[in-house]
Amino acid sequence: MIAHVRRLTALAALCSLGAAALTACGGAERGAPAEPTTAVRPTGSPSPSGPPTLAPGPAGLAPVFKNGPRDHGKTVALTFDADMTADQGPRAAGGERFDNPQLIDTLRRLKVPSTVFMTGRWAEEYPDQAKAIGTDPLFEVANHSYSHHAFTSRCYGLPAVAPEKMRADVERAFTAFRKAGITHPAPYFRFPGGCYDRAALRRVAPAGVTAVQWDVVSGDAFATDADAVAQEVLRGVKPGSVVVLHCTRSAAPATERAIRTVVPELRERGYRFVQVSELIGASAGRN
């Protein structure tokens, strides 16, 4: 119990770093509405045969997806947030690395289908890597905002996007993807910090996105103990789980090593790795 409290205290301190905070700092849903129905609709997809999205939530709010069905086989989606905030250019120019090519290489070597939630600013900083990820069928690229600023007034110290600019921030990220050569990003959106409320869901709905959360927090943000990260994932995964991890070398240095433990162990347990789109598709028609 004491160790758990200490861990929560340390996590809260890390999340207070503001613009550098990563989504695994809590994944809070500020005033989140009831779960919407999960009928698939084509809007928001790049083409009629593109990735499935969910039906709009109540009052036209963007739908929210957290995990796939528990009774549809032992599938799990590993998701990686490629975080870089709009104001971190000077840090990148000074040598800080917000990418993690070794992690991507490991996922390729292990043949792990994955979903990368990328900020537009990350795609601008690493356009060659963004294109390589976005054109590799092993991965699907989804939207993590342009700026990695918060979509609620309080979200672990992140600066907030003005409500009237929320849709534009999402669409600016898609524009950055296209400029980098990612022609078919998935119509999914992950709120920075995992923080959203009804107002935010209403603002991003016209962008045609499904908001994607998670049900397993890896704890890889700022972690240096790869075994601890791996055990956190292995303890939490259930059929249909969505796991949040990070593709940010400077702020999640243990992730690649943890993946080398997680992947073979989950496969030994009978799990199959899938992209988020497959879980959303499997959820069609379920409440």
Rank of each mutant, 00 (worst) to 15 (best):
A28L: 11
A20H: 12
G27S: 13
A39K: 15
A34P: 07
A20C: 10
I2V: 12
A39F: 14
C25W: 00
G31Q: 07
P46Q: 07
A32V: 01
G44Y: 01
M1W: 10
G18Y: 01
C15G: 10
S45L: 09
A19N: 03
R6T: 05
M1C: 08
A3Q: 13
H4G: 09
H4V: 08
R7V: 03
G44T: 04
P48C: 08
A28D: 11
P46G: 15
G26H: 04
S47L: 11
G44A: 03
S47R: 15
C25S: 06
S16I: 00
H4T: 09
A24E: 15
G44W: 01
R6D: 06
C15H: 00
L11M: 08
S16G: 02
A24F: 06
P46W: 14
P36T: 04
L8H: 06
A3S: 15
L8A: 09
S47M: 11
G26D: 08
T23N: 10
L14P: 00
R30E: 14
G31K: 09
A24V: 11
G18P: 07
T37G: 15
E29L: 07
S16Y: 00
T38N: 14
A3M: 13
R30S: 12
G50V: 05
V40E: 10
A12V: 05
G31L: 07
G26Q: 05
L17N: 01
A3E: 14
A19G: 04
A39R: 15
L8T: 02
G27Y: 12
C15Q: 04
A20R: 13
G31R: 11
V5P: 00
A20P: 05
S16E: 00
T38H: 15
R41F: 05
L8G: 01
A20K: 11
L8K: 05
T43C: 07
L8M: 10
P51F: 08
G18Q: 03
V40I: 12
P36E: 04
R6C: 08
T43D: 14
A12P: 00
G27A: 12
E35I: 06
G50D: 03
A12F: 04
T9D: 05
M1V: 12
R30P: 06
A34F: 10
G31W: 07
T23G: 09
H4A: 14
P51L: 11
P46V: 13
P52F: 06
L22P: 01
R7M: 09
H4K: 11
G31E: 07
P51H: 05
T53A: 07
M1G: 13
P48S: 06
S45I: 09
I2F: 15
A21G: 06
L11Q: 07
I2Y: 14
G26S: 08
H4Y: 08
V40H: 12
A21F: 00
G27R: 10
P33M: 03
R30Y: 09
R41T: 12
P42E: 07
L11P: 00
E29K: 04
V5D: 08
A13S: 03
G26N: 06
T38Y: 13
A20E: 10
R6L: 14
A12Q: 06
E35V: 05
P52M: 07
S47P: 02
S16T: 00
E29G: 11
A39G: 12
T38Q: 15
A39I: 05
T37D: 12
P33A: 02
C15V: 04
A10W: 08
P46D: 04
T37Q: 14
A3Y: 11
R30D: 13
